[in-house]
């Protein structure tokens, strides 16, 4: 099945916001990959392929928005735990402001309240 332009736009929107959702999950506490994926997967429509989270984590780390450290795990090999950096915290705060403005603006139109009389 070939995705339509609409499908692709929705997918792009989801992809673009996903990295901030990952950062938001790290706002309160550090987490390891599997834990992050599980939390994202609990919400319908957020992640289609779980594996795509890992390249995303690698890129966020490369951009200095998150960092990682190894911790012992109760069962199995040590785990890589991800934390939000100060830079990541700023980026997330910036996104949240922008997101609220954007969300309110879109709501205004899609709910039909933006029309001039």
């Amino acid at each position: 099945m070939v995705p339509t332009i609409q499908d692709r736009l929705i997918a792009q929107m989801r992809r673009g916001t996903l990295e901030y959702c990952v950062m938001a999950l790290l706002r309160e506490k550090e987490r390891y990959g599997f834990d992050l994926v599980r939390s994202l997967g609990e919400v319908d429509g957020m992640v289609t392929s779980e594996g795509t989270i890992y390249p995303l984590l690698t890129r966020l780390r490369r951009d200095g928005l998150i960092e990682s450290s190894w911790s012992e795990s109760p069962n199995g090999p040590p785990r890589r735990y991800y934390q939000l950096t100060p830079k990541g915290r700023d980026a997330l705060a910036g996104f949240v402001d922008e997101w609220h403005r954007f969300r309110d603006a879109v709501d205004l139109f899609v709910e039909g309240r933006g029309e001039r009389r």
């Binding site: 690698t58 890129r59 490369r62 199995g76």
Partner: peptide, 24 residues
Amino acid sequence: LRDLPRGRREIVDEIREHVREALV
């Protein structure tokens, strides 16, 4: 993933770990 500039090994290791966690 062979032509990713960096981080290929890390991604594969993390996914290996993910599978292990999911199967355990």
